[in-house]
Design a protein around this nucleic acid. Structure first.
Lengths: 242, 242
DNA sequence: GTCTATAGGCGGATAGAC
DNA sequence: GTCTATCCGCCTATAGAC
Protein backbone atom coordinates (compact mmCIF):
# COMPACT_ATOMS: atom_id res chain seq x y z
CA UNK A 1 0.00 0.00 0.00
CA UNK A 2 2.54 2.63 1.13
CA UNK A 3 5.12 4.00 -1.29
CA UNK A 4 8.87 4.08 -0.81
CA UNK A 5 10.59 6.29 1.76
CA UNK A 6 11.04 10.00 1.22
CA UNK A 7 14.48 11.64 1.31
CA UNK A 8 16.35 10.37 4.32
CA UNK A 9 18.40 13.35 5.43
CA UNK A 10 15.73 15.96 6.10
CA UNK A 11 12.82 15.78 8.48
CA UNK A 12 10.21 17.13 6.17
CA UNK A 13 6.77 15.63 5.96
CA UNK A 14 8.17 13.14 3.46
CA UNK A 15 10.95 11.99 5.76
CA UNK A 16 8.56 11.66 8.65
CA UNK A 17 6.23 9.60 6.54
CA UNK A 18 9.05 7.20 5.81
CA UNK A 19 9.92 6.85 9.47
CA UNK A 20 6.29 6.33 10.30
CA UNK A 21 5.95 3.71 7.64
CA UNK A 22 8.89 1.89 9.14
CA UNK A 23 7.46 2.18 12.63
CA UNK A 24 4.17 0.90 11.33
CA UNK A 25 5.80 -2.18 9.87
CA UNK A 26 7.55 -2.81 13.17
CA UNK A 27 4.43 -2.44 15.28
CA UNK A 28 2.51 -4.65 12.86
CA UNK A 29 5.15 -7.31 13.28
CA UNK A 30 5.00 -7.00 17.07
CA UNK A 31 1.24 -7.40 17.04
CA UNK A 32 1.44 -10.47 14.85
CA UNK A 33 4.14 -11.98 17.05
CA UNK A 34 2.05 -11.53 20.16
CA UNK A 35 -1.01 -12.86 18.35
CA UNK A 36 0.97 -15.96 17.39
CA UNK A 37 1.93 -16.44 21.02
CA UNK A 38 -1.73 -16.30 21.97
CA UNK A 39 -2.61 -18.76 19.26
CA UNK A 40 -0.59 -21.26 21.24
CA UNK A 41 -2.45 -20.62 24.46
CA UNK A 42 -6.03 -19.96 23.44
CA UNK A 43 -6.28 -21.16 19.86
CA UNK A 44 -7.41 -19.36 16.76
CA UNK A 45 -11.07 -19.42 17.69
CA UNK A 46 -10.42 -17.30 20.75
CA UNK A 47 -7.84 -14.96 19.27
CA UNK A 48 -8.66 -11.62 20.84
CA UNK A 49 -7.47 -8.16 19.92
CA UNK A 50 -8.00 -7.07 23.48
CA UNK A 51 -5.76 -9.73 24.92
CA UNK A 52 -3.06 -8.88 22.41
CA UNK A 53 -3.33 -5.21 23.30
CA UNK A 54 -3.22 -5.95 27.02
CA UNK A 55 -0.09 -8.03 26.64
CA UNK A 56 1.53 -5.31 24.56
CA UNK A 57 0.59 -2.57 27.00
CA UNK A 58 -1.53 -0.82 24.42
CA UNK A 59 -5.14 0.23 24.40
CA UNK A 60 -7.23 -2.27 22.50
CA UNK A 61 -8.61 0.45 20.30
CA UNK A 62 -5.13 1.26 19.05
CA UNK A 63 -4.87 -2.10 17.31
CA UNK A 64 -7.72 -1.20 15.04
CA UNK A 65 -5.34 1.18 13.26
CA UNK A 66 -3.34 -1.86 12.19
CA UNK A 67 -5.99 -4.48 11.68
CA UNK A 68 -9.55 -3.36 10.96
CA UNK A 69 -10.94 -6.45 12.67
CA UNK A 70 -10.02 -9.64 14.41
CA UNK A 71 -10.55 -11.57 11.17
CA UNK A 72 -8.05 -9.43 9.30
CA UNK A 73 -5.44 -10.21 11.91
CA UNK A 74 -6.30 -13.88 11.54
CA UNK A 75 -5.90 -13.66 7.78
CA UNK A 76 -2.47 -12.07 8.18
CA UNK A 77 -1.41 -14.87 10.51
CA UNK A 78 -2.67 -17.50 8.09
CA UNK A 79 -0.80 -16.02 5.15
CA UNK A 80 2.35 -15.74 7.26
CA UNK A 81 2.05 -19.37 8.30
CA UNK A 82 1.57 -20.61 4.74
CA UNK A 83 4.52 -18.50 3.64
CA UNK A 84 6.71 -19.75 6.44
CA UNK A 85 5.90 -23.37 5.62
CA UNK A 86 6.24 -22.77 1.89
CA UNK A 87 9.60 -21.12 2.46
CA UNK A 88 10.79 -24.06 4.52
CA UNK A 89 9.75 -26.47 1.80
CA UNK A 90 11.47 -24.40 -0.89
CA UNK A 91 14.61 -24.07 1.18
CA UNK A 92 14.75 -27.83 1.73
CA UNK A 93 14.33 -28.37 -1.97
CA UNK A 94 17.02 -25.89 -2.90
CA UNK A 95 19.47 -27.28 -0.40
CA UNK A 96 18.98 -30.74 -1.97
CA UNK A 97 19.66 -29.43 -5.47
CA UNK A 98 22.20 -32.08 -6.37
CA UNK A 99 20.06 -35.06 -5.44
CA UNK A 100 17.60 -37.03 -7.51
CA UNK A 101 13.87 -36.28 -7.56
CA UNK A 102 12.86 -39.07 -5.20
CA UNK A 103 15.34 -37.96 -2.55
CA UNK A 104 14.27 -34.36 -2.94
CA UNK A 105 10.63 -35.38 -2.54
CA UNK A 106 11.38 -37.08 0.73
CA UNK A 107 13.42 -34.15 1.97
CA UNK A 108 10.64 -31.70 1.19
CA UNK A 109 8.19 -33.94 3.05
CA UNK A 110 10.53 -34.03 5.99
CA UNK A 111 10.85 -30.26 5.93
CA UNK A 112 7.07 -29.99 6.12
CA UNK A 113 7.06 -32.33 9.10
CA UNK A 114 9.85 -30.49 10.88
CA UNK A 115 8.20 -27.13 10.31
CA UNK A 116 4.87 -28.45 11.59
CA UNK A 117 6.41 -29.89 14.74
CA UNK A 118 8.25 -26.63 15.36
CA UNK A 119 5.10 -24.54 14.77
CA UNK A 120 2.20 -26.72 15.90
CA UNK A 121 -0.22 -23.89 16.48
CA UNK A 122 0.44 -22.27 13.16
CA UNK A 123 0.08 -25.70 11.60
CA UNK A 124 -3.29 -26.04 13.31
CA UNK A 125 -4.23 -22.62 11.97
CA UNK A 126 -3.71 -23.63 8.35
CA UNK A 127 -4.31 -27.38 8.27
CA UNK A 128 -6.45 -27.98 11.35
CA UNK A 129 -10.15 -27.48 11.82
CA UNK A 130 -11.54 -24.37 10.18
CA UNK A 131 -12.10 -21.46 12.55
CA UNK A 132 -15.88 -21.23 13.08
CA UNK A 133 -17.38 -18.08 11.64
CA UNK A 134 -14.27 -17.26 9.65
CA UNK A 135 -13.78 -17.80 5.96
CA UNK A 136 -10.38 -17.20 4.48
CA UNK A 137 -10.30 -14.65 1.67
CA UNK A 138 -8.73 -15.50 -1.69
CA UNK A 139 -5.55 -13.68 -0.61
CA UNK A 140 -4.42 -16.83 1.14
CA UNK A 141 -4.42 -18.97 -1.99
CA UNK A 142 -0.97 -18.15 -3.45
CA UNK A 143 0.78 -18.68 -0.14
CA UNK A 144 -1.18 -21.89 0.44
CA UNK A 145 -0.09 -23.30 -2.90
CA UNK A 146 3.64 -23.07 -2.34
CA UNK A 147 4.25 -26.52 -0.86
CA UNK A 148 2.25 -28.21 -3.60
CA UNK A 149 4.19 -26.23 -6.19
CA UNK A 150 7.48 -27.52 -4.85
CA UNK A 151 6.22 -31.09 -5.13
CA UNK A 152 4.91 -30.45 -8.64
CA UNK A 153 8.27 -28.97 -9.60
CA UNK A 154 10.01 -32.17 -8.53
CA UNK A 155 7.63 -34.28 -10.57
CA UNK A 156 8.02 -31.99 -13.56
CA UNK A 157 11.75 -32.38 -13.48
CA UNK A 158 11.52 -36.13 -13.06
CA UNK A 159 9.14 -36.24 -15.97
CA UNK A 160 11.59 -34.40 -18.22
CA UNK A 161 14.16 -37.03 -17.33
CA UNK A 162 13.42 -40.69 -16.92
CA UNK A 163 12.77 -40.82 -13.22
CA UNK A 164 8.99 -40.92 -13.34
CA UNK A 165 6.81 -43.99 -13.67
CA UNK A 166 3.21 -43.42 -14.66
CA UNK A 167 0.79 -44.61 -11.98
CA UNK A 168 -2.16 -46.71 -13.06
CA UNK A 169 -5.63 -45.33 -12.54
CA UNK A 170 -8.99 -46.91 -13.28
CA UNK A 171 -11.10 -45.82 -16.23
CA UNK A 172 -13.76 -44.19 -14.07
CA UNK A 173 -11.21 -41.75 -12.69
CA UNK A 174 -9.76 -40.73 -16.03
CA UNK A 175 -12.08 -37.79 -16.78
CA UNK A 176 -11.43 -36.23 -13.39
CA UNK A 177 -7.70 -36.93 -13.76
CA UNK A 178 -7.65 -35.05 -17.07
CA UNK A 179 -9.55 -32.17 -15.53
CA UNK A 180 -7.17 -31.94 -12.57
CA UNK A 181 -4.10 -32.12 -14.79
CA UNK A 182 -5.43 -29.34 -17.02
CA UNK A 183 -5.98 -27.17 -13.95
CA UNK A 184 -2.87 -27.96 -11.99
CA UNK A 185 -0.06 -29.10 -14.28
CA UNK A 186 -0.98 -29.54 -17.93
CA UNK A 187 2.55 -30.66 -18.74
CA UNK A 188 2.34 -33.73 -16.51
CA UNK A 189 0.45 -36.96 -17.18
CA UNK A 190 -3.02 -36.93 -15.61
CA UNK A 191 -2.15 -40.10 -13.70
CA UNK A 192 0.80 -38.34 -12.09
CA UNK A 193 -1.22 -35.30 -11.10
CA UNK A 194 -3.94 -37.46 -9.58
CA UNK A 195 -1.46 -39.47 -7.57
CA UNK A 196 0.29 -36.28 -6.50
CA UNK A 197 -2.88 -34.75 -5.13
CA UNK A 198 -3.61 -37.89 -3.15
CA UNK A 199 -0.05 -38.05 -1.81
CA UNK A 200 -0.21 -34.38 -0.90
CA UNK A 201 -3.31 -35.01 1.22
CA UNK A 202 -1.80 -38.16 2.70
CA UNK A 203 1.39 -36.32 3.60
CA UNK A 204 -0.59 -33.88 5.68
CA UNK A 205 -2.47 -36.78 7.21
CA UNK A 206 0.78 -38.19 8.52
CA UNK A 207 2.04 -34.83 9.69
CA UNK A 208 -1.26 -33.86 11.25
CA UNK A 209 -1.53 -37.13 13.16
CA UNK A 210 1.88 -36.56 14.65
CA UNK A 211 1.39 -32.87 15.43
CA UNK A 212 -2.05 -33.39 16.93
CA UNK A 213 -0.95 -36.31 19.07
CA UNK A 214 -2.81 -39.16 17.40
CA UNK A 215 0.40 -41.19 17.20
CA UNK A 216 0.90 -40.95 20.94
CA UNK A 217 1.64 -44.43 22.25
CA UNK A 218 1.31 -45.79 18.74
CA UNK A 219 4.52 -44.78 16.99
CA UNK A 220 7.64 -44.07 19.02
CA UNK A 221 10.43 -43.67 16.48
CA UNK A 222 8.48 -41.12 14.52
CA UNK A 223 11.31 -39.65 12.41
CA UNK A 224 12.17 -43.05 10.97
CA UNK A 225 8.53 -43.98 10.57
CA UNK A 226 7.84 -40.74 8.74
CA UNK A 227 10.83 -40.97 6.45
CA UNK A 228 9.75 -44.38 5.30
CA UNK A 229 6.17 -43.21 4.81
CA UNK A 230 7.39 -40.28 2.71
CA UNK A 231 9.46 -42.68 0.63
CA UNK A 232 6.38 -44.77 0.03
CA UNK A 233 4.44 -41.71 -1.03
CA UNK A 234 7.24 -40.88 -3.45
CA UNK A 235 7.05 -44.38 -4.83
CA UNK A 236 3.31 -44.21 -5.13
CA UNK A 237 3.48 -40.98 -7.14
CA UNK A 238 5.85 -42.65 -9.57
CA UNK A 239 9.23 -41.46 -8.38
CA UNK A 240 11.87 -44.16 -8.47
CA UNK A 241 14.84 -44.31 -6.15
CA UNK A 242 18.18 -44.79 -7.86
CA UNK B 1 -22.97 -45.82 37.11
CA UNK B 2 -26.66 -46.24 38.02
CA UNK B 3 -28.15 -49.69 38.54
CA UNK B 4 -31.18 -51.15 36.77
CA UNK B 5 -34.72 -49.88 37.39
CA UNK B 6 -36.70 -50.78 40.46
CA UNK B 7 -40.05 -52.56 40.24
CA UNK B 8 -42.20 -50.83 37.65
CA UNK B 9 -45.71 -51.16 39.05
CA UNK B 10 -45.39 -49.41 42.41
CA UNK B 11 -44.33 -45.87 43.12
CA UNK B 12 -42.04 -46.61 45.99
CA UNK B 13 -38.71 -44.93 46.35
CA UNK B 14 -37.28 -47.65 44.09
CA UNK B 15 -39.80 -46.97 41.32
CA UNK B 16 -39.24 -43.26 41.55
CA UNK B 17 -35.52 -43.71 41.37
CA UNK B 18 -35.98 -45.66 38.14
CA UNK B 19 -38.09 -42.92 36.64
CA UNK B 20 -35.58 -40.34 37.70
CA UNK B 21 -32.78 -42.35 36.20
CA UNK B 22 -34.65 -42.48 32.93
CA UNK B 23 -35.37 -38.79 33.00
CA UNK B 24 -31.75 -38.13 33.73
CA UNK B 25 -30.67 -40.10 30.70
CA UNK B 26 -33.12 -38.20 28.56
CA UNK B 27 -32.02 -34.79 29.78
CA UNK B 28 -28.40 -35.78 29.38
CA UNK B 29 -29.10 -36.71 25.78
CA UNK B 30 -30.88 -33.41 25.20
CA UNK B 31 -27.96 -31.46 26.58
CA UNK B 32 -25.50 -33.34 24.41
CA UNK B 33 -27.67 -32.83 21.34
CA UNK B 34 -27.83 -29.10 21.92
CA UNK B 35 -24.11 -29.00 22.61
CA UNK B 36 -23.47 -30.78 19.31
CA UNK B 37 -25.58 -28.16 17.56
CA UNK B 38 -23.45 -25.45 19.11
CA UNK B 39 -20.29 -27.23 18.08
CA UNK B 40 -21.36 -26.55 14.52
CA UNK B 41 -21.83 -22.84 15.11
CA UNK B 42 -19.12 -21.87 17.56
CA UNK B 43 -16.68 -24.76 17.55
CA UNK B 44 -15.38 -26.85 20.39
CA UNK B 45 -13.15 -24.12 21.78
CA UNK B 46 -16.15 -21.92 22.50
CA UNK B 47 -18.51 -24.61 23.71
CA UNK B 48 -20.37 -22.96 26.55
CA UNK B 49 -22.59 -24.49 29.21
CA UNK B 50 -24.35 -21.17 29.53
CA UNK B 51 -25.27 -21.03 25.88
CA UNK B 52 -26.54 -24.61 25.97
CA UNK B 53 -28.65 -23.81 29.02
CA UNK B 54 -30.02 -20.66 27.42
CA UNK B 55 -31.05 -22.53 24.29
CA UNK B 56 -32.69 -25.23 26.40
CA UNK B 57 -34.52 -22.73 28.59
CA UNK B 58 -32.71 -23.90 31.69
CA UNK B 59 -30.67 -22.09 34.26
CA UNK B 60 -26.99 -22.55 33.54
CA UNK B 61 -26.40 -23.80 37.04
CA UNK B 62 -28.78 -26.70 36.42
CA UNK B 63 -26.43 -28.21 33.86
CA UNK B 64 -23.78 -28.71 36.48
CA UNK B 65 -25.93 -31.55 37.86
CA UNK B 66 -25.32 -33.41 34.60
CA UNK B 67 -21.80 -32.37 33.72
CA UNK B 68 -19.49 -31.15 36.48
CA UNK B 69 -17.67 -28.85 34.08
CA UNK B 70 -17.47 -27.75 30.51
CA UNK B 71 -14.62 -30.17 29.89
CA UNK B 72 -16.68 -33.14 31.02
CA UNK B 73 -19.34 -32.25 28.50
CA UNK B 74 -16.62 -32.01 25.86
CA UNK B 75 -15.32 -35.43 26.82
CA UNK B 76 -18.79 -36.92 26.49
CA UNK B 77 -19.16 -35.41 23.04
CA UNK B 78 -15.76 -36.75 21.98
CA UNK B 79 -16.55 -40.27 23.13
CA UNK B 80 -19.92 -40.14 21.40
CA UNK B 81 -18.27 -38.98 18.18
CA UNK B 82 -15.65 -41.73 18.25
CA UNK B 83 -18.37 -44.27 18.97
CA UNK B 84 -20.56 -42.98 16.19
CA UNK B 85 -17.72 -43.16 13.69
CA UNK B 86 -16.56 -46.52 15.00
CA UNK B 87 -20.09 -47.86 14.72
CA UNK B 88 -20.35 -46.66 11.14
CA UNK B 89 -17.07 -48.37 10.27
CA UNK B 90 -18.16 -51.60 11.92
CA UNK B 91 -21.54 -51.50 10.22
CA UNK B 92 -19.90 -51.00 6.83
CA UNK B 93 -17.61 -53.91 7.50
CA UNK B 94 -20.43 -56.18 8.62
CA UNK B 95 -22.58 -55.30 5.66
CA UNK B 96 -19.70 -56.29 3.36
CA UNK B 97 -19.27 -59.66 5.05
CA UNK B 98 -19.30 -61.67 1.85
CA UNK B 99 -16.61 -59.70 0.07
CA UNK B 100 -12.85 -60.10 0.06
CA UNK B 101 -10.56 -58.22 2.43
CA UNK B 102 -9.46 -55.59 -0.09
CA UNK B 103 -13.04 -54.66 -0.96
CA UNK B 104 -13.98 -54.55 2.67
CA UNK B 105 -11.03 -52.26 3.39
CA UNK B 106 -12.18 -49.81 0.75
CA UNK B 107 -15.75 -49.92 1.99
CA UNK B 108 -14.69 -49.20 5.56
CA UNK B 109 -12.61 -46.27 4.31
CA UNK B 110 -15.60 -44.99 2.39
CA UNK B 111 -17.77 -45.32 5.47
CA UNK B 112 -15.30 -43.17 7.39
CA UNK B 113 -15.42 -40.58 4.64
CA UNK B 114 -19.23 -40.59 4.48
CA UNK B 115 -19.55 -40.28 8.23
CA UNK B 116 -17.06 -37.42 8.32
CA UNK B 117 -18.84 -35.51 5.57
CA UNK B 118 -22.15 -36.03 7.36
CA UNK B 119 -20.72 -34.94 10.73
CA UNK B 120 -18.01 -32.39 9.92
CA UNK B 121 -18.04 -30.70 13.31
CA UNK B 122 -17.84 -33.94 15.21
CA UNK B 123 -15.06 -34.97 12.86
CA UNK B 124 -13.26 -31.73 13.68
CA UNK B 125 -13.75 -32.48 17.34
CA UNK B 126 -11.93 -35.81 17.17
CA UNK B 127 -9.50 -35.45 14.27
CA UNK B 128 -9.08 -31.69 13.98
CA UNK B 129 -6.91 -29.36 15.97
CA UNK B 130 -6.80 -30.13 19.69
CA UNK B 131 -8.98 -27.90 21.82
CA UNK B 132 -6.61 -25.49 23.62
CA UNK B 133 -6.53 -26.01 27.34
CA UNK B 134 -8.30 -29.36 27.11
CA UNK B 135 -6.67 -32.74 27.35
CA UNK B 136 -8.76 -35.80 26.70
CA UNK B 137 -8.83 -38.32 29.55
CA UNK B 138 -7.98 -41.95 28.96
CA UNK B 139 -11.71 -42.73 28.78
CA UNK B 140 -11.69 -41.75 25.13
CA UNK B 141 -9.13 -44.36 24.11
CA UNK B 142 -11.35 -47.43 23.60
CA UNK B 143 -13.84 -45.53 21.50
CA UNK B 144 -11.04 -43.91 19.53
CA UNK B 145 -9.54 -47.29 18.67
CA UNK B 146 -12.60 -48.77 17.02
CA UNK B 147 -11.89 -47.74 13.42
CA UNK B 148 -8.32 -48.97 13.60
CA UNK B 149 -9.55 -52.24 15.05
CA UNK B 150 -11.84 -52.80 12.11
CA UNK B 151 -8.94 -52.27 9.73
CA UNK B 152 -6.73 -54.59 11.76
CA UNK B 153 -9.45 -57.22 11.72
CA UNK B 154 -9.51 -57.13 7.93
CA UNK B 155 -5.75 -57.56 7.75
CA UNK B 156 -5.87 -60.36 10.27
CA UNK B 157 -8.37 -62.26 8.22
CA UNK B 158 -6.41 -61.66 5.02
CA UNK B 159 -3.31 -62.87 6.77
CA UNK B 160 -4.99 -66.11 7.78
CA UNK B 161 -5.88 -66.65 4.12
CA UNK B 162 -3.64 -65.79 1.22
CA UNK B 163 -4.79 -62.27 0.50
CA UNK B 164 -1.97 -60.41 2.18
CA UNK B 165 1.36 -59.48 0.65
CA UNK B 166 4.09 -58.44 3.04
CA UNK B 167 5.22 -54.85 2.46
CA UNK B 168 8.93 -54.15 2.29
CA UNK B 169 10.45 -51.93 4.94
CA UNK B 170 14.04 -50.75 5.33
CA UNK B 171 16.31 -52.18 7.98
CA UNK B 172 16.38 -49.00 10.05
CA UNK B 173 12.63 -49.21 10.60
CA UNK B 174 12.58 -52.86 11.64
CA UNK B 175 13.05 -52.38 15.41
CA UNK B 176 10.21 -49.87 15.58
CA UNK B 177 8.08 -52.12 13.38
CA UNK B 178 8.58 -55.02 15.76
CA UNK B 179 7.72 -52.80 18.70
CA UNK B 180 4.54 -51.55 17.06
CA UNK B 181 3.45 -55.02 16.07
CA UNK B 182 3.96 -56.30 19.61
CA UNK B 183 1.81 -53.47 20.93
CA UNK B 184 -0.91 -53.42 18.31
CA UNK B 185 -1.26 -56.81 16.65
CA UNK B 186 1.32 -59.43 17.62
CA UNK B 187 -0.25 -61.94 15.26
CA UNK B 188 0.49 -59.85 12.19
CA UNK B 189 3.84 -59.33 10.47
CA UNK B 190 5.59 -56.15 11.69
CA UNK B 191 5.73 -54.90 8.10
CA UNK B 192 1.97 -55.15 7.84
CA UNK B 193 1.36 -53.33 11.10
CA UNK B 194 3.73 -50.54 10.12
CA UNK B 195 2.09 -50.06 6.75
CA UNK B 196 -1.31 -50.18 8.39
CA UNK B 197 -0.50 -47.38 10.80
CA UNK B 198 0.77 -45.23 7.95
CA UNK B 199 -2.31 -45.96 5.84
CA UNK B 200 -4.54 -45.21 8.78
CA UNK B 201 -2.98 -41.76 9.13
CA UNK B 202 -3.09 -41.20 5.38
CA UNK B 203 -6.74 -42.17 5.26
CA UNK B 204 -7.57 -39.42 7.71
CA UNK B 205 -5.41 -37.06 5.72
CA UNK B 206 -7.58 -37.60 2.69
CA UNK B 207 -10.80 -37.38 4.67
CA UNK B 208 -9.66 -34.32 6.61
CA UNK B 209 -8.63 -32.47 3.48
CA UNK B 210 -12.06 -33.02 2.01
CA UNK B 211 -14.00 -32.20 5.17
CA UNK B 212 -11.96 -29.09 5.92
CA UNK B 213 -12.21 -27.77 2.38
CA UNK B 214 -8.60 -28.14 1.24
CA UNK B 215 -9.74 -29.94 -1.90
CA UNK B 216 -11.97 -27.03 -2.89
CA UNK B 217 -11.27 -26.22 -6.53
CA UNK B 218 -8.67 -28.97 -6.63
CA UNK B 219 -10.69 -32.18 -6.79
CA UNK B 220 -14.22 -32.11 -8.17
CA UNK B 221 -15.27 -35.75 -8.45
CA UNK B 222 -14.32 -36.47 -4.89
CA UNK B 223 -16.14 -39.80 -4.39
CA UNK B 224 -14.30 -41.37 -7.31
CA UNK B 225 -11.03 -39.78 -6.32
CA UNK B 226 -11.40 -41.06 -2.79
CA UNK B 227 -12.38 -44.57 -3.78
CA UNK B 228 -9.27 -44.88 -5.88
CA UNK B 229 -7.10 -43.45 -3.11
CA UNK B 230 -8.55 -45.97 -0.65
CA UNK B 231 -7.82 -48.76 -3.11
CA UNK B 232 -4.23 -47.59 -3.31
CA UNK B 233 -3.97 -47.55 0.47
CA UNK B 234 -5.29 -51.12 0.50
CA UNK B 235 -2.68 -52.08 -2.04
CA UNK B 236 0.04 -50.37 -0.10
CA UNK B 237 -0.83 -52.25 3.08
CA UNK B 238 -0.54 -55.51 1.20
CA UNK B 239 -4.15 -56.32 0.35
CA UNK B 240 -4.56 -57.69 -3.14
CA UNK B 241 -7.67 -57.27 -5.22
CA UNK B 242 -9.02 -60.46 -6.76
C1' DG C 1 -1.82 6.93 16.55
C1' DT C 2 -2.75 6.48 21.00
C1' DC C 3 -5.54 7.19 24.83
C1' DT C 4 -9.99 6.91 28.08
C1' DA C 5 -14.63 5.86 28.35
C1' DT C 6 -18.50 3.54 27.02
C1' DA C 7 -22.10 0.48 25.07
C1' DG C 8 -23.85 -3.94 25.21
C1' DG C 9 -22.91 -8.00 25.37
C1' DC C 10 -20.53 -12.85 26.65
C1' DG C 11 -18.36 -16.62 29.87
C1' DG C 12 -17.47 -20.36 34.26
C1' DA C 13 -18.60 -21.35 38.46
C1' DT C 14 -20.76 -21.13 43.18
C1' DA C 15 -24.24 -20.20 47.17
C1' DG C 16 -28.40 -20.91 48.94
C1' DA C 17 -33.63 -21.02 48.51
C1' DC C 18 -37.29 -24.17 47.36
C1' DG D 1 -32.85 -30.69 40.34
C1' DT D 2 -34.04 -26.41 39.28
C1' DC D 3 -34.10 -21.77 40.28
C1' DT D 4 -32.26 -16.69 41.32
C1' DA D 5 -28.53 -13.96 42.47
C1' DT D 6 -23.92 -13.13 42.50
C1' DC D 7 -18.75 -12.71 41.80
C1' DC D 8 -15.51 -11.53 38.65
C1' DG D 9 -13.83 -11.91 34.50
C1' DC D 10 -13.88 -11.62 29.42
C1' DC D 11 -15.02 -9.76 24.42
C1' DT D 12 -15.77 -6.50 19.79
C1' DA D 13 -16.21 -2.20 18.47
C1' DT D 14 -16.94 2.84 18.51
C1' DA D 15 -16.68 7.93 20.06
C1' DG D 16 -14.09 11.62 20.98
C1' DA D 17 -10.06 13.94 23.37
C1' DC D 18 -5.23 14.90 22.72
Amino acid sequence: MSTADGVRGDRTARGTRGARARARIEVTATIKAEARAQLAVEGAAKLSLRAVARELGMASSALYRYFPSRDDLLTALIIDAYDSLGGAAEAAHDSAAGLGPARRWTMVCEAVRVWALAHPHEYALIYGSPVPGYTAPQDTVPAAARVAEVLIGILREAHRGTGLAKPVIPAELRPEARRMAADIAPDLPPETVTAMVACWAELFGLVGFEVFGQLHRVVEDRPTFFRHAADRLAHSVGLVFP
